[in-house]
Nucleic acid binder design. Structure first.
Length: 221
DNA sequence: TACCAGGAGAAAA
DNA sequence: TTTTCTCATGGT
């Protein structure tokens, strides 16, 4: 993928939306919990589930690991897939405690930490990379559905490449820079929510053609 | 009413 | 190995 194209899209997204100040979460552990809960789920519903955890004084790896899946599922209900996510979060918390928590995990190199995350039940490539970038501040580019849709419509990718292929595309096309990866992914999500929807909701973005007319038209901000 | 949302794992082909 | 199915609440 053309490096100039990647830089151009970033510059235009940043100019249009400004810094997004991601990830919403007060602690690295809360970021990790949010990364699991947001799987195929709107963030507003994740916030409700996290609020339930805080209210129950359960936003803690030891307490979540000790809680029954049924009880944890009740707290996670607003985020959807609550039975699935209760099991995944308990698996994650058991792993997190067994490995010694944040300080010990921070000592691992990025590749090793990524391999360990991917071995946890319920942590796939996107969730692992969310955690690496936003909780451990590692230079890993997160690929999500918005990334595929936006860059597919721009004609820069086909959109059906496998995850690792796309991650390499972005990481080799951009300098290894945590603040850049952080902001770029946040802007992609913002633009995806804003105008680059699955179906046309406004005239700003072309949904009928393979390329995105919005970014082809240099007069747009 | 139908679609969509910051995926992942299991089952089926 | 690749594709399809399942999980679920809440907003638009």
């Amino acid at each position: 993928m053309a490096k100039a194209g990647l830089r151009m899209v970033y510059a235009r997204l940043l100019r249009r939306y400004g810094p997004q100040h991601w990830w919403p979460g007060d602690t690295p552990f809360e970021v990790m919990v949010g990364a699991v809960l947001t799987q195929n789920t709107a963030w507003v519903n994740v916030e409700r589930a996290i609020a339930n955890l805080v209210e129950a004084n359960a936003l803690d790896p030891a307490r979540m690991a000790a809680m029954s899946e049924t009880r944890l599922g009740e707290l996670l209900r607003p985020s959807g897939y609550f039975n699935v996510k209760a099991r995944r979060l308990r698996s994650f918390c058991r792993w997190y405690l067994a490995t010694g928590g944040y300080d010990r995990l921070s000592m691992l190199d990025t590749d090793d930490l990524r391999r360990q995350l991917l071995a946890v039940h319920g942590v796939g490539p996107e969730t692992a990379d969310d955690i690496l970038l936003y909780a451990f501040t590692r230079p890993v580019f997160v690929i999500d559905a918005y990334t595929r849709r936006i860059f597919g419509r721009l004609g820069m990718i086909t959109g059906d490449e496998d995850y690792e292929t796309l991650r390499r595309c972005f990481e080799t096309g951009l300098k290894r820079d945590v603040p850049l990866y952080n902001e770029y992914h946040a802007l992609i999500v913002r633009h995806g929510k804003d105008v680059c929807r699955p179906r046309p909701l406004c005239g700003e973005c072309c949904f009928a053609r393979s390329a995105c007319a919005y970014y082809r038209d240099a007069s747009n901000p």
